[in-house]
Design a protein around this nucleic acid. Structure first.
Length: 496
RNA sequence: GGGCCCGUAGCUCAGCCAGGUAGAGCGGCGGGCUUUUAACCCGUAGGUCCCGGGUUCAAAUCCCGGCGGGCCCGCCA
């Protein structure tokens, strides 16, 4: 068989026959990052670098080739008249995709490009497959991009940039929270009872305990236990797992930052949230103004605080012309019918209002950062009732670019009320609501020991990055998004 | 869960409507070329046309079923 992989295995065998290891343990001498060389080129000085060969241009007695090291490209040249031996070694044994050690001297070509005149080279890792596209050109098939994301990132600086922004964002969130005196903590991913959100969980099995457990759907309940324990400011950045559909805004595992602060309420958390997002945007992107695609247009979104605060009832009045606060239940049910919204289980006014909100207040009204505040109490079993409106909860959701980015409360710390709300949730579950919150006795007991007044925040990191880079697909910002596995085919090249 | 679209060489795609020997560019391989950079020029190899069934003398093409992917809608407080 004369496939590329077989041809390259043959090259590998010829190398080995010459006593050359195609996978040496380290470069023959210390190398410096290409980024440093490019940033600070000392012409006529010698350099030793390493990287992947991503382009070769042969001109008879002269070869130009490009290597990429940690995302940075540099051109190298090899001339037959300089070294016949090196030249023919490269010609015979080096292929696109190989990792090379290169040492030589820097110069500028006629066209003014910084180039390494190669004086020595070593194969650091032989590639058996060549890259699917030329470097700098995007892999186009979305299936290949998501299944083999390493190729997508390897060949496309724009894609690499997305993930640099993602991970810089996480870094800057940490720095911001540390700077505010928060301690970063860890809580269990495997839990005997899930909670903290309305969602269906993933089940798993703990062999050692012979028990069915769950993957967490939020970080909330364990972080509040830290507040009970006496830590005043805690946060965690981690994966949540929700057994829901996969679409452009949802991946079954996604990254959240949650924070809890004693003696704060949801007003404090609104200020924290807008400070956090605007500061991180400035540090990562160098600007607080981003562009987001809406239809065929790009909309400028200004992340500078303060963000608009709009109660859910005012949002109804302003954007849907509905005075949902004062309409009777039968009228509200008419609206549900009109928008064909079905409530699972018994009718509940608060939940009906929240469902209706998602439908009637269009995304176009929630492009600029907006805190939607004061949700109906019955839709928020972990939030504290509003200080002046018992039918409402002290809760807000932050919308940017039409997406829900954050959810926060003044936390409920009354253990008896929490138990009451959990009982309501259990009732909902018995009526068929698979997303109703399970009763967590251990959490209620923790509250019985006393939790100070607390403000909490949950921030969707993936969606924040979507806003930062201006994409409508969560798959663009998740390195390895969930995709159905392919049946493994024993193909030539994998079997060895 | 419903709808629309896509699956052909390593990559990007044409061919399908109207059935008749499977194509192009890039990449690979061979050759040429000493300042190119998506290098260029000449030559050449390369296919489970996603899988299974059906119709037909004949299927990449038409029909049915399946698999995988994308987008839209529903669901996701």
């Amino acid at each position: 068989m004369s496939s590329e992989v077989e041809l390259r295995r043959e090259v590998r065998r010829r190398l080995e026959a010459l006593g050359i290891n195609p996978y040496p343990h380290s470069p023959k001498s210390r190398v410096v990052p290409v980024a440093d060389v490019v940033k600070n080129p000392s012409i006529d000085g010698s350099v030793a670098i390493a990287g992947r060969v991503v382009g070769v241009r042969r001109h008879g007695g002269l070869i130009f080739f490009d290597i990429v090291d940690d995302g940075v490209r540099i051109q190298c040249s090899l001339s037959r008249s300089e070294s016949r031996e090196l030249f023919s070694f490269f010609d015979e044994f080096v292929d696109l995709g190989d990792f090379l050690y290169v040492s030589g001297t820097l110069y500028y070509t006629k066209k003014g490009e910084l180039t390494v005149a190669v004086k020595d080279l070593q194969i650091l890792a032989k590639a058996l497959r060549s890259p699917p596209v030329k470097w700098g050109h995007r892999v186009l098939d979305p299936e290949v991009r998501y299944r083999k994301r390493y190729l997508d990132i390897m060949m496309s600086p724009q894609v690499r940039k997305i993930f640099e922004i993602r991970f810089r964002t996480i870094e800057e969130i940490r720095k911001f929270m540390w700077g505010r005196g928060y301690i970063e903590v860890e809580t269990p991913i495997l839990q005997p009872i899930y909670g903290g959100a309305a969602a269906r969980p993933f089940k798993t099995y703990i062999w050692a305990l012979d028990t069915e457990w769950y993957l967490r759907i939020s970080l909330e309940l364990y972080l509040k236990r830290f507040i009970v324990a006496g830590f005043n400011k805690v946060f965690e950045i981690g994966k949540n797992f929700r057994n829901e559909d996969i679409d452009v805004e949802h991946n079954p595992e996604f990254t959240m930052m949650e924070s809890y602060e004693a003696y704060a309420d949801y007003n404090d958390i609104m200020r924290l949230t807008e400070d956090l997002i605007s500061t991180v945007a400035e540090r990562v992107l160098g600007t607080k103004v981003v562009e987001y695609p809406v239809g065929n247009e790009k909309v400028r979104i200004d992340l500078s605080p303060p963000y608009r605060r709009l109660s859910i009832y005012d949002a109804f009045r302003e954007y849907a012309g509905i005075d949902v606060e004062s309409i009777p239940d039968d009228k509200l049910k008419e609206y549900l019918d009109r928008y064909s919204i079905r409530l699972v289980g018994a009718y509940d006014r608060g939940r009906a209002i929240v469902k209706l909100f998602d439908r009637v207040v269009g995304r176009e009204h929630l492009l600029q950062p907006t805190f939607i505040t004061d949700f109906p109490r019955s839709s928020s079993p972990l939030a504290k009732p509003h200080r002046s409106r018992p039918d409402l909860a002290e809760r807000f959701e932050l919308y940017i670019a039409g997406m829900e980015l954050a959810n926060a409360y003044t936390e409920l710390n009354d253990p008896d009320l929490q138990a009451t709300y959990f009982r309501e949730e259990e009732l909902r579950r018995s009526l068929g609501d698979l997303e109703a919150h399970p009763f967590d006795w251990d959490f209620v007991e923790a509250l019985e020991y006393g939790m100070p007044p607390t403000g909490g925040l949950g921030l969707g990191i993936d969606r924040l990055v979507m806003v930062f880079i201006g994409t409508t697909s969560i798959k663009e910002v998740i390195p390895f998004p969930m995709i159905k596995p392919r049946e493994f085919e024993e193909k030539e090249g994998l079997s060895g």
